[in-house]
Design a protein around this nucleic acid. Structure first.
Length: 539
RNA sequence: GCCCCGUUAGUCUAGCGGUCAGGACACGGCCCUCUCAAGGCUGGGACAGGAGUUCAAUUCUCCUACGGGGCACCA
């Protein structure tokens, strides 16, 4: 299905919220927006949706700029570079939303609601127990507008809700799905303006998209179900809605929506572990999308420009693509191999150089580096993304030292408990500092009943992949939370897999066999060569 | 629970009524080779199930199953 393109210039946007680490999903949607804009000689806008005061942060906003730049996305307008329809940060647009909201209030398309959070919770709980769709029950819908206004003026807290039609249907034209029809009775009287005076996503989004002249809203599928509300808003304002394109959601291996619990979702993780930005972009361009050569075979490797050259969003496939690290690594290898050796050297060095942890890492390994040649060996656990855990590492992960292999099963269970506790603590840590890390590690080990030495060894191996490392807490700090959590979860998966134990034992027995053979070989070699001549002696 | 979207091998995908169902990652084998990679060749592996429409369904329609998303004063 071709994407409708009006005659006026194309304007698209991405609108990330600056909460937490810059997300691969943002880059994914950004890629398709940027490519679409470029293909139509349009404009790509970056808008920051920071209306959630509690969760938004400036640091996160900066990280978004950094990471999007890293993958090679460039926007034409945004909070950092300005543009003709700013401001581009929603927290700076409060007056605009309030003004538009007043308009809806005046026309009767919206109304004030004084319901308490407790009452709303109660209503929802009741509805759920009656197996109905949970939504606002319209308690304040009939309130007299003048009276409500007076109450609000008197200082009573309230929100402003959209008055949705109570019958009929809303048809959502989606460029990839055709029209999707919603029964209006299913829909909620969505809150538009929160009691803190800031808009919700829905209001801000519609107002901004209109005011910024957005022609195509290319966003993730999770928004499809709220599009009818947005359409009602456009109608209430008397505005023409944009073309909607809902992209499939990136998935974890188990097909659920991609999440940091199950996958590294932070772009910084990939940057740090040495994924080339062009490989990352290429990989994202393969998610739900494909290009083919004249023979009809799929093209796996392509640049942004090549993607733009024959872009057709209508070819996007709707099944949720699993974000497969294996394939990402393969593509990355493709790019690394295509570099001239001098370029590779240059880029690898630049990669090391741009890592802000350089000094911290150097100070940790300094004592262990008799000559520069040893530097790479000691530094590598800090720069890698995921780690491989060999035989010895697996034993140690299971909480076993060489002395206590007999206690394997018991220890594996205890070490699982350590890692589970630790992941929980590290996720919750607000302060990623060495003392906080130390406290978390100590408490996790103590709670499990594993000896401090064995427990810390298991954690060290999980964190660094080897039993010898700089001091653990400092090392964990330098590795960083995102990467460390990826490693811990990897280890958890290993420990939860009974095959790991079998494999470890199997590997141990073949190692033993190899040792036996080596011994035999050595014994024979040590004997005086009496009859080594002639083939007959071999028997 | 209700609403919506989806479903080609373990994974990413091609296919848009008639194909030996194509390519790629991963996996196995062989070749190359001082090792390891890389590369080449090669093998196994898929249309979720059931009805219908049609001379003909992976492709169109419906039902079922399964997966996912949404149902906040979060985006």
């Amino acid at each position: 299905m071709p994407i409708p393109v009006p005659h006026h210039p194309v304007r698209v946007r991405i609108a990330p919220s600056p909460t937490g680490d810059p997300h691969v999903g943002t880059a994914y949607i950004g890629l398709f927006n940027a490519a679409f804009a470029r293909a139509h000689h349009g404009t790509f806008v970056l808008r920051i949706e920071d209306t959630d005061q509690k969760r938004s942060s400036l640091a996160s906003e900066q990280a978004i700029y950094q990471s999007l730049h890293w993958v090679g996305l460039r926007w034409d307008e945004g909070p950092d570079i300005g543009g003709p329809v700013g401001p581009y940060r929603q927290s700076e647009r409060s007056a605009i939303y309030q003004h538009h909201c007043a308009q809806l209030l005046a026309s009767g398309a919206a109304y004030r609601c004084f319901c308490s959070a407790e009452r709303l919770d109660q209503v929802r709980a009741d509805q759920r127990s009656r197996k109905e769709t949970a939504r606002y029950d319209g308690y304040c819908r009939g309130l007299d507008a003048q009276h409500a206004q007076a109450q609000a003026d008197a200082g009573q807290e309230c929100v402003i809700r959209l008055r949705m039609p109570t019958d009929g249907e809303t048809e959502v034209p989606d460029a990839l799905r055709g029209s999707v029809v919603y029964d209006n009775r299913q829909m909620d009287d969505q809150v538009l303006l929160k009691s803190d005076g800031l808009p919700t996503y829905h209001l801000a989004n519609v107002v901004d998209d209109h005011l910024m002249g957005i022609t195509h809203v290319i966003r993730a599928e999770e928004w499809l179900n709220s599009t009818p509300k947005h359409l009602q808003l456009y109608a209430a304002f008397g505005w023409q809605p944009p073309v909607f394109v809902h992209m499939p959601l990136l998935r974890n291996a188990d097909k659920s929506k991609i999440s940091k619990r199950k996958n590294p979702t932070s772009l910084q993780f990939y940057q740090r572990s040495g994924i080339l930005p062009e490989a990352m972009l290429n990989f994202l361009g393969l998610m739900g999308y494909s290009r083919k050569d004249p023979e009809g075979d799929d093209i796996e490797k392509f640049s942004f420009e090549e993607m733009v050259a024959d872009l057709d969003l209508g070819r996007i496939s709707l099944g949720g693509p699993v974000f497969d690290l294996e394939k990402l690594r393969w593509i990355n290898g493709l790019y690394i191999r295509s570099l001239a050796p001098s370029q590779l050297a240059q880029r690898a060095l630049a990669w090391l150089d741009e890592d802000e942890r350089a000094g911290e890492i150097a100070s940790l390994i300094q004592e262990r580096v008799p000559e520069f040649g040893d530097y790479l060996h000691h530094a590598s656990p800090f720069y890698r993304g995921t780690l491989d855990y060999g035989l010895q590492a697996r034993y140690l992960l299971m909480g076993c030292t060489a002395k206590k292999k007999t206690a394997v099963r018991l220890s594996a269970k205890a070490s699982r408990a350590v890692f589970e506790d630790l992941v929980g603590q590290f996720e919750a840590l607000t302060d990623w500092s060495v003392p906080a890390i130390e406290q978390a590690v100590r408490s996790a080990v103590e709670k499990s009943g594993v000896g401090l030495g064995d427990g810390m060894m298991a954690i060290r191996v999980a964190a660094c992949g080897r039993p010898a490392s700089p001091p653990l807490f400092e090392s964990i700090h330098a590795i960083g939370r995102a990467t460390l959590l990826v490693r811990l979860r990897h280890v958890q998966a290993l420990l939860a897999d009974p095959r790991m134990l079998v494999e470890a034992l199997h590997a141990a027995s073949s190692e033993l066999e190899a040792a036996r053979q080596a011994l035999q070989f050595a014994t024979e070699a040590a004997q005086p060569a009496t009859d080594t001549s002639g083939p007959a002696a071999a028997t």
